[in-house]
Nucleic acid binder design. Structure first.
Length: 259
DNA sequence: ATGGTAGACCTTCTA
């Protein structure tokens, strides 16, 4: 089972590029982030034509996540538990039906910049809520994949120019500590487990020639329960997609499970 | 030290 995650930066502005990649890469499951539209504006029919079942948790203008699967999506959950009054659409979870069901979550963790605004505490609070929910999911002792745009640079080796990110919400010690707290519940970073070579990035900013200078960071992750690690067969970062016409600033990250 | 790009949008916010 091939499970992809991709922050597409507007699914409608990017639809041609997204469909081109889907036809080439043929993921069984895909988690999209930053779809930037409400549910009714999501191009559901285009994905159904490719054979996918579709679940969407959209939002006007900003954020929004989706889950696509060749087999049915069951037990769909939209949003984390304990939503606040101004909840943003950043979490969508479902069980991928099959002989070995796999629970998958599409995650768009808050960016958190600028750090001297309410955005940073919102990020840390959201990470706390994700961690509490992940603890409950791990208690189920089933194959679980938490994947998406975490907006976290886990270590200096995950940035080409780590000094550029000092003080940034993606790399602050508090952010990295919160990410470790999540992982230390018993989750495994699929990229480190299956490959781990440094210099592998999933995001290059549109600005200041970041792509041309390879000023990249690894912020799109897949965290696996022990039962999912047992199935892990490999990972791949589709770096070349960043060089396509009208690219997203993120590229697809794919994990392969022996299911 | 600064500014650079992209997308959706109640020309400004978010990243």
């Amino acid at each position: 089972m091939r499970i992809a995650t991709w922050n597409v930066n507007s699914v409608n502005a990017r639809l041609e590029t997204v469909l081109k990649w889907f036809e080439a890469a043929q993921p069984d499951v895909a988690c999209l982030q930053e779809i930037k539209c409400v549910d009714e504006k999501f191009p559901t029919e285009a994905f159904e034509r490719l054979g996918y079942n579709v679940a969407v948790h959209g939002q006007k203008s900003y954020n929004g996540v989706a889950l696509l699967s060749k087999t049915p999506l069951e037990d769909v959950r939209r949003g984390l538990p304990d939503p606040g009054a101004e909840e943003q659409s950043r979490y969508l979870e479902a069980v991928i039906a099959g002989p070995m069901p796999v629970r998958v979550a599409s995650i768009y963790l808050p960016n958190g910049n600028p750090v001297d605004t309410e955005k940073y505490p919102y990020k840390l609070d959201w990470m706390g809520r994700l961690t509490r929910h992940a603890r409950d999911l791990l208690a189920l002792e089933e194959p679980l994949v938490l994947t998406g745009d975490f907006n976290v640079i886990p270590e200096a080796r995950d940035a080409e120019f780590p000094a550029n990110w000092e003080g940034d919400a993606l790399f602050r010690p508090q952010t990295r500590e919160a990410f470790r707290t999540l992982k230390y519940l018993g989750l495994t970073d699929a990229y480190l487990e299956a490959d781990g070579a440094p210099g592998a990035y999933t995001f290059w900013d549109y600005q200041a020639g970041a792509w041309q200078r390879n000023n990249g960071i690894r912020i799109d992750h897949a965290l696996l329960s022990p039962q999912a690690v047992d199935l892990l067969a490999g990972v791949s970062i589709h770096r070349d997609v960043r060089g396509w016409d009208k690219p997203s600033d993120h590229v697809p990250f794919v994990i392969e499970l022996d299911v």
